[in-house]
Design a protein around this nucleic acid. Structure first.
Lengths: 316, 316
DNA sequence: GGCCCCGTTGCTCATGTGAGCAGGATCACC
DNA sequence: GGTGATCCTGCTCACATGAGCAACGGGGCC
């Protein structure tokens, strides 16, 4: 039996007594016939070698070391990473992330006067998790088209209005479909006085809050009727990994289908990229690829995500 | 937002800074605008409410609090519980437990002069994990019959001999099948001078080491040809949960089939029960029921097992 | 409205713990 | 077999932490 092996075993015995039995290092020393300094070193060793895992089990728990790595290694201004410890379902993960996004939004200083938001399942959940009074007099403006064509009419509007109301302000909706069938129609809509004014307001926002969609049939665009499942398949074939504010991007963050993009109403990706504060909220294993594209191509300055996604960004 | 809720969130934030960022309570106090005493209380609260989980990730890690509960609540003289943290396969669990049993055997003081052992997969693994020189001059004696009928001839012998050799002593084998077809044959064998002497020696052992088998087709008795799968089915129907030293017991620790039992060679259950030191080594989810029966009916004074089995004993 | 009770707060003090350091053992290499 | 480098040990000291305690304050009850 090698010396290192003996030390390893001893460090495990010491860790058991220290962490499970709450003994002092001195007591452990007496029990194992070691000086208390040796015990301290064994415990430090056990930690350093990764034998000790400390987890914070709570829906609101975050992973600060991973957040730091995201800031440092991926150049983000800020990162919020929720813990996946104890998560039972994808829905729970989604909820934790939405909660964290709501927390982050609430904590932004100075409080944004104008906030640009996209819409979708994630944004809606965030709006629900916000507390009344999270801001005072915030003006919420939609940054991409979102009049639902078939199901769930008004969730886009409900999201923006909800965020605004709880923030003691008003919402400015973008009265336009997300994607139009013909380019001419899209240009006509954008030149409409009201629509143009909303987009202009969106461009002037202090901060943006948006999510990302995965490029698959579960997309909100498919659900809302803007794209058919077959359309999505074609996009995937062209390299699409997901969409941001209705615009499909590849793994480098570039527009996949310029023609489609030209028919999409709302802020452009470059306008997002040049924003001072662009908060992306992306969670779930289905969105690992989009999250990666978004962060790589600088589409957001702040990312709110879950631990698994964050680790994917760091190791992938 | 209720006060308790605020405190809960604060304790999570504090825990993140304390355990993940290694800040001092004082630093955390400054960051969260609290006194360091408040921080200390929040951390204590987080621990006490179970938000903090500390795990020792190591094949040799044990669960001392569960061992204590087994001793106190189930009246065992001693209990060894190996951690299941990070276990990938049932084989790994089995190996960890065998290793722990070998460790326990090595640590018994005074060193037993005569050790009675059963045989089987578990015992064989224990013999392999023992280190040469674990004892000096130990006499190992088989406590139940075990001349394999078909496959793997000699593992029973190899186990006893291995334990003896590594302990610097000799092995005394029980030259008899485990179960005989006819009662008369069994009685004849037991009256044989050599066999009788071995059993007499077994009765005088200072300590016993044995495992338990589950009552299913994977049993060593089936594998060795002493019982057919159909025989086992019948036993199960009669309430058998497993076997100890070849004897099938029900959930109360009583012999299931007295006729069969009468044809089984080796120590009786009552002889085991009255032993000073009887160490049972039982691991794996298939053996939860037997483990329970063994402990309930006082068949062992010391139990070596895994965390999941131990929790089954405590909660079931 | 006054009073009491109980939970919370910020403290003192004792204990627990980690950093850094000098002496000593160990090992490889000459 | 000598010698130097390196690691390890047991220490001092400074800091971090938990226990216990008095003062405070808020809420319920008379």
């Amino acid at each position: 039996m090698h010396v290192d092996e003996v030390d390893e075993l001893l460090s495990i015995r010491a860790a058991e007594l220290y962490y499970e039995e709450n003994k002092t290092q001195d007591e452990i020393g007496q029990a194992l016939r070691l000086t208390r300094w040796k015990v301290g070193r064994l415990l430090a060793q056990a930690k350093q070698r990764g034998f000790i895992r400390i987890e914070i089990l709570h829906p609101r728990a975050r992973r600060l070391p991973i957040e730091r790595r995201l800031r440092e290694e991926r150049g983000l201004a800020d990162a919020i990473v929720v813990s996946t410890a104890g998560v039972q379902s994808p829905e729970e993960l989604q909820e934790r992330t939405a909660q964290a996004a709501a927390d982050y939004l609430t904590a932004i200083r100075p409080v944004p006067r104008t906030l640009g938001v996209s819409w979708g399942r994630t944004l809606f959940e965030i709006s629900q998790h916000l507390r009344s009074g999270w801001a005072t007099g915030v003006n919420v403006v939609q940054i991409n088209g979102g009049v639902s064509l078939n199901r769930r009419p008004g969730t886009a509007a409900a999201t923006a209005v909800g965020i605004a109301q709880k923030g003691g302000g008003s919402a400015t909706l973008l009265p336009s479909p997300a994607i139009l069938e013909r380019l001419a129609t899209k240009e006509a809509i954008e030149s409409d006085r009201v629509v143009a004014a909303v987009i202009e307001l969106a461009r002037s926002a202090d901060a943006y809050l948006f999510s990302a969609g995965a490029a698959d049939h579960s997309s909100v665009h498919v659900e809302s009727g803007y794209l058919s499942p077959a359309d999505v398949d074609v996009l995937v074939q062209k390299g699409a990994v997901g969409d941001i504010v209705g615009r499909y991007i590849d793994s480098d963050g570039n527009i996949v289908d310029p023609a489609l993009d030209a028919r999409t109403v709302g802020l452009t990706l470059d306008e997002l990229r040049s924003a001072e504060l662009a908060v992306a909220v992306i969670a779930g294993s289905a969105k690992h690829a989009v999250a990666d594209a978004v962060v790589r191509s600088g589409l957001c300055s702040v990312l709110v995500t879950d631990e698994a996604t964050a680790l994917h960004l760091l190791n992938g």
